[in-house]
Design a binder for these strands. Structure first.
Length: 580
RNA sequence: GCGCCCAUAGCUCAGCUGGAUAGAGCGUUGGCCUCCGGAGCCAAAGGUCAGAGGUUCGAAUCCUCUUGGGCGCGCCA
């Protein structure tokens, strides 16, 4: 409807240009917004206000000229000038109600658009290190990323969801040593478990699996584990322990233990996310980049740019040339590439796979990492704007008013699984996605659990279930609901019906805005509004107990409502139950 | 110290990229049909949009400064 109005007004503007009121080269964009108050009609534009100065007219005079030039249009009932020069448009009721038919004809397609025009987008999110179960902090990224993927798909992008598995590097070694030490304990060895290794119970489970399947095969005498290291630094001691383990177990044994841990945790995370209604097209291994020399290739590609140099026997990327705070190491003194180097390879790989836009969802603590990543792309002559990084702020956790730590190593976190079991995947997803991603979020676990019944998701789902219930009642009373398409929409007109229809008609616009701005929370708010409009209507009017003609019309309206609720909930990964 | 993010009702948050009288949920107070599901509906109270300047017809929204909070500044990932 907005677009229709824009066309009408553009025609009027053209007319004024021809009449010399406006300069022919004057750039004019007529923007409409939904009027907040009823007395201001349905849509309002400030075009006369913004143009007034350019043509030396007062805004109100110009508004009048525009209105006079406006072509006759059946959808417009009335046009008014208000305030300093707003033009308020009142729509003809009949043309508004047609949306009910449009929605029902479009079915599941309603709200979809071709904004993306088939552009290939890869969205990478969660990507938590596979060193422990996901905690509630990861849940926010998961809910956000997945909803974004759904929104982008609905708006005509070709979307691939990917999880980058950080299965290389020191964190993996710490995982391996943690598993192995617990395993040795099970074998009956006396070992001191370092406090900076992974403390979580899940490590025992993995160790137990190894012990059950292989007995003492990976057992080594614990006295050989002792390292003669004076360094009081716990991290250095841990590294020394890892070195001992590699020697004692041999390459294959060590790889085995590490692999068991990695596989177990990856599988755990994958299952957890599936229960959360999040599925990835691909789990991309960081190690595979190293194994296939793609990291080396990337470093060479970067070197060809001329922004790579050697210092202190390490290889550096001159990222400061592109605005980064300092230059960054890509190959360590030891010869091992940094995490940054494999990340460059990963992003290069995404570009080579033909994605037009790379979307990364990161925790806000990684924001300092963005300039160097963009710099790398720029150095290799890619447009850095093809990388879009969406930062999701931390969710500070509280339990009984106390802040809860979320350290994976210390094993002191609340898992996503726990949360899901307490409140359910639907409530958790809705709760997460309700918040704007760049907004800090206080997550009170006790509140989230105790209020599970007051979560707005139930309010929205209840609206859907209620509509389904009305149709069940209709069936019981042998009321024919098969020909809602033939409903006479001109019978609508109650204020609650107008409000509901207006909200329904805004849905495609909300989806587009949510996708274009990477703001799925808009959809959550829209759905709450829609549910509110419906509940209010439900309370004020009867659907089944009225004359057959009106009954059919109202059923068509609430059926369209049910459809939009289903589509909208689906877009944020929440179910639309028939009964609750 | 430098950089990024944030500050809106008692609490948790929206505010449609600068519009008209700043809105929801929770909590508080009062009300609702013997009828399609009361997980609902209606109403009231609650605000110096952190503070101060600036930009303009017009600012919660844009700019500067101040205050207060979160995060980052590794040859960790």
């Amino acid at each position: 409807m907005k677009q229709r109005l824009q066309e009408r007004f553009a025609a009027a503007i053209e007319m004024l240009k021809r009449d010399g009121v406006l300069a022919p080269d004057q750039q004019v964009a007529v923007r409409f917004e939904h009027a907040r108050q009823k007395q201001h009609g349905d849509f309002a534009t400030n075009v006369a206000l913004s143009l007034g100065k350019a043509c030396r007219q007062t805004p109100r005079e110009l508004a009048q000229l525009i209105i006079d030039a406006l072509p006759a249009a059946p959808e417009i009932a009335k046009v008014e000038i208000a305030g300093p020069g707003f033009i308020n448009v009142f729509l003809a009721a009949a043309s508004q109600f047609n949306i009910v038919g449009t929605i029902r004809d479009a079915g599941n397609e309603y709200g979809r658009s071709n904004l993306g025009a088939g552009q290939k987008v890869i969205i990478e999110f969660v990507s938590a290190n596979p060193t422990g179960p996901l905690h509630v902090g990861h849940g926010r990224g998961a809910a956000f990323g997945d909803s974004m993927a759904r929104l982008l798909t609905a708006t005509g992008f070709e979307v691939t969801k990917e999880y980058y598995v950080n299965d290389a590097g020191r964190q993996m070694d710490i995982l391996a040593i943690s598993v192995w030490l617990r395993y040795l304990e099970l074998c009956g060895e006396q070992v001191t478990f370092p406090e900076n290794a992974y403390q979580g119970d899940y490590i025992f489970d993995i160790a137990a699996t190894v012990h059950r399947e292989h007995g003492d095969r990976y057992r080594r005498p614990s006295d050989k584990l002792r390292t003669e290291i004076d360094d009081p630094d716990l991290e250095s001691q841990l590294d020394a322990l890892i070195q001992r383990a590699k020697i004692l177990l041999g390459h294959e044994g060590y790889r085995y233990v590490l692999g068991v841990g990695l596989d177990a945790l990856t599988a755990d995370i994958r299952g957890d996310l599936e229960q959360f209604n999040v599925k990835f097209e691909r789990w991309f291994s960081e190690r595979s980049l190293l194994d296939d020399q793609r990291v080396d290739n990337a470093i060479q590609a970067l070197a060809r740019s001329g922004y790579v140099f050697e210092r202190d026997r390490a290889l550096w990327f001159r990222s400061t040339a592109f605005g980064d705070e300092k230059d960054r190491v890509v190959v360590r003194e030891s010869g091992a590439p940094t995490y940054f180097a494999s990340d460059i390879a990963y992003h290069l790989n995404k570009l080579e796979r033909g994605f037009d836009r790379l979307i990364d969802v990161w925790g806000a603590d990684h924001h300092g990492y963005l300039p160097r990543m963009k710099a790398a792309l720029q150095a290799m002559e890619y447009d850095p704007d093809r990388l879009v990084v969406l930062l999701v702020q931390f969710a500070a956790l509280y339990r009984g008013g106390e802040k809860v730590s979320m350290s994976t190593r210390a094993g002191e976190f609340v898992t996503l699984r726990e949360l899901r079991r307490e409140v359910g995947a639907d409530a958790a997803r809705f709760f997460y996605v309700q918040r704007k991603s760049e907004q800090h979020m206080d997550f009170d676990l006790d509140l989230a659990k105790s209020q599970s019944n007051e979560n707005p998701v139930y309010y929205v789902q209840y609206a859907h279930a209620r509509i389904c219930s009305v149709f069940r009642q209709a069936a019981e009373k042998n009321i024919d609901t098969s020909d809602l398409g033939g409903a006479d929409l001109s019978l609508l007109g109650e204020s609650h019906e107008i409000a509901l229809v207006n909200t329904l008609s805004r849905f495609p616009e909300v989806v587009e805005n949510a996708a274009a701005n990477y703001e799925p929370h808009r959809l959550a708010y829209f759905l709450r509004n829609l549910a509110n409009d419906f509940h209010t209507y439900y309370n004020a009017h009867n659907f089944l107990g009225v004359a057959p003609g009106l009954r059919r019309t109202r059923l068509a309206l609430i059926d369209a409502t049910r459809q939009v609720l289903t589509i909208g909930l689906e877009l944020i990964g929440v179910s639309a139950p028939d009964k609750m």
